[in-house]
Design a binder for these strands. Structure first.
Lengths: 236, 236
DNA sequence: AAAACAAATTGATATATGTCATTGTTATAA
DNA sequence: TTATAACAATGACATATATCAATTTGTTTT
């Protein structure tokens, strides 16, 4: 699969919630300085260790962000979708990327240069604060996930991840998760072995919590799933 | 143990690396607006769920920051020491605290009001950027820990935590860790059961990696520990 | 100093989950 | 249409780690 990259002209970042606090003028130059591209599933946006020149806004599609751990096993840190930004963490720290990002659903991304970001932070304190809050939100998520992964069983975590995916990517009319992951990707998110995911999904199906057909996961007993997930209070 | 709080007059935050980018004038009003206190081991600085009015700078002592998970089991998110700041995450997100912070070594803290923080972020873009980089650094750590906890054995993680503690709190002349934790606290950091920590520490001792006397942990084979920790590349 | 409590240790045991191996299934390409 | 590979599903098995229970040691508190 080739990285079919085709520049796109008419995309604007003006509607992005992340840029809500920008003035018209700032938006104008932002839109001028960004570079958009269309990427096919499987394309890699940037690799762990690479030098970043900017961050990316996701206009459409889905991206998985992961770290490479022991034996090259990937740990998925998050899924990003329309309206999200990626690569900003390492960029702001001025380090080379500590994650890899890969398209899992055909996407359109806009690249915003580091300099533009710095400029906005410097000139627009509302933007700086908004940025700060985005990082803080992600840090909160991370801390919660550390607690989960340290204290919960794989079964509980799988249920929880399914609920999280439901909240992030919604269900279609048929109560089916609008994100399609391989069993391995699910395993790399939950932090377990692929076989365990397969077995647990089957169990969930037997228990009438979900229905499976291929990669489609249909939630048929939400309350039951929530119960299995054993939520403390956080994540809905 | 009582929360013996005694206001302290002559403490200044001017030397804090975190405030490096402040002007003399900003420092002056910061020092005026802060409130310092001396807290004994065991004191709780703030509790999960409480409303925060500011963040805290640690002038001396050690603090553990933890989340309460399943069955009230605590998951230690980080240890903070001189020069570190705590409580800023929830504060910036304007949420109630999602962690609890407790003194584990007699400490002096300075409370800086939210308004002061906001003001600095608004008026001093270098400070805003510095703040941003602090949050980013913590997010990086968190992501790395997620990968570890998801992929490594308890044995590996324990070795790694010992190394981390060594880097954060240094060793005394005798190669002994300058932070004293109960086995339970170690367990709650590593994300395992207390008994497992006890057994693994004994094994490490048998393997001549460390020496134990009470809560004192002496590192006698650093290279060996590093090997056990099975570091990918990140944390030293 | 005794009493009361918290922390550390050790052993026995159960089990959730990882690992390995095999086969079936589906997608992709040639 | 076959060939090739990626993915999914199952079974058998090993084991790291949790859990439970009992004992010892060390710290506070009165």
């Amino acid at each position: 699969m080739k990285n079919l990259i085709e520049p796109l002209d008419d995309i604007t970042l003006s509607g992005f919630r992340f840029f809500k606090s920008l003035s018209d003028e700032e938006l104008k130059s932002l839109n001028y300085e960004k570079t958009c591209s269309s990427l096919k599933k499987g394309s890699i946006i940037y690799k762990e260790g690479s030098r970043l020149t900017g961050f990316y806004c996701i206009v459409r599609g889905i991206v998985k962000v992961y770290k490479t751990g022991i034996d090259g096993k990937e740990q998925i840190i998050r899924f990003a979708r329309k309206g999200d930004i990626i690569a900003y963490r390492s960029l702001l720290s001025q380090e080379s990327a500590c994650t890899t990002s890969k398209i899992i659903e055909d996407a359109i991304l806009c690249h915003v240069p580091y300099k533009t970001l710095l400029n906005l932070i410097e000139k627009n304190s509302s933007f700086a604060l908004a940025m700060l809050r985005i990082v803080c939100a992600e840090l909160k998520e991370a801390n919660e996930y550390i607690t989960d992964i340290a204290q919960k069983t794989v079964r509980e975590r799988l249920a929880e991840i399914l609920l999280l995916l439901k909240d992030s990517f919604d269900l279609d009319a048929d109560q089916t998760l609008q994100i399609s992951l391989t069993r391995e990707e699910l395993a790399n998110t939950v932090g377990t072995a692929t076989e365990s995911i397969i077995r647990l999904l089957s169990e969930f199906k037997q228990d009438k919590l979900i229905d499976l057909q291929g990669r489609k996961i249909k939630i048929i007993n939400l309350a039951g799933l929530i119960k299995v997930a054993n939520l403390t209070n956080n994540r809905s």
